[in-house]
């Protein structure tokens, strides 16, 4: 805990009795040192218990080197670089998938088994591990598993098709949740702004329009900083 929080905990959590105060860390400075040593790279408002879980998972290793290398090859076949943006491995997607396999253990067997299937197929057809096969050979294999029949429910698809769908999903979600992917997608939010309606050209493109009567009820953003006052009937005066 940082100094501010330790104090808060003492002041707020510990008013119960002398005993409760005793239970808290008596020296806030000591707590600060501890915090620095154990902090992970991810600061996103974790509770102590959640932080512990993240640290534990980040320390564990699930995929072996061969699996990670195979994964990198497959991720970049799914999402290679183009002129505007980097590839899946440029966005460190395999590291994300490694984390997810530990975070959601139900992914472990389908992924690990899936990579084994891929090597088995490549060895059978071309006498070479998937990651070392030529791009043409790799794509010939992928063409047999990358197009699920939309009429068949996901869980009834053949195992190799399910594996590829899982890898495609993880690759795309891992990519578009990075700085690189968000830029490529064009998402413009997650920052303070003032929403004042849909741009005119967008209304025209999608063939919709605002209703004037409706707009008249909406916030006048030039007055957002003026404190609200009403008359006794609830009519806004400011």
């Amino acid at each position: 805990m940082d100094r501010r929080k330790s104090l808060k905990s003492i002041l707020l959590g510990g008013v119960a009795s002398g005993l409760a105060v005793h239970g808290c860390k008596p020296n806030p400075n000591e707590a600060v040192t501890q915090e620095v040593v154990t902090a992970s790279n991810y600061t996103y408002g974790r509770t102590p218990k959640e932080k512990e879980l993240d640290e534990k998972l980040l320390k564990e290793v699930f995929f072996n080197q061969h699996e990670m290398e195979s994964m990198s090859v497959l991720c970049d076949l799914i999402l290679p670089a183009n002129n505007d943006s980097g590839s899946a491995t440029d966005a460190e997607v395999p590291n994300f998938i490694e984390f997810m396999a530990k975070d959601l253990p139900e992914l472990q067997t389908p992924l690990r088994g899936g990579f084994m299937w891929l090597d088995h197929k490549s060895n059978t057809d071309y006498n070479v591990m998937f990651m070392s096969a030529s791009e043409e050979q790799q794509k010939t294999i992928l063409d047999t598993i990358a197009y699920p029949d939309p009429a068949v429910p996901a869980e009834e698809q053949p195992l190799e098709v399910q594996f590829f769908t899982l890898m495609r999903n993880l690759t795309l979600t891992g990519y578009y949740t990075t700085k690189m992917g968000i830029k490529d997608l064009g998402y413009k939010g997650n920052m303070p702004n003032v929403w004042d309606g849909i741009p005119e050209d967008v209304l025209a493109q999608h063939n919709v329009a605002y209703d004037d009567e409706w707009l008249a009820k909406c916030v006048d953003q030039s007055k957002r900083g003026i404190i609200a006052e009403w008359d006794e009937n609830g009519n806004l005066l400011t």
Binding site: Y42, L57, F96, M100, D103, T177, T178, K179, I182, N190
Partner: peptide, 12 residues
Amino acid sequence: LKWPYESPRRGA
């Protein structure tokens, strides 16, 4: 105002 990549599980 955190970004998805600030979580190792991207918000799962």
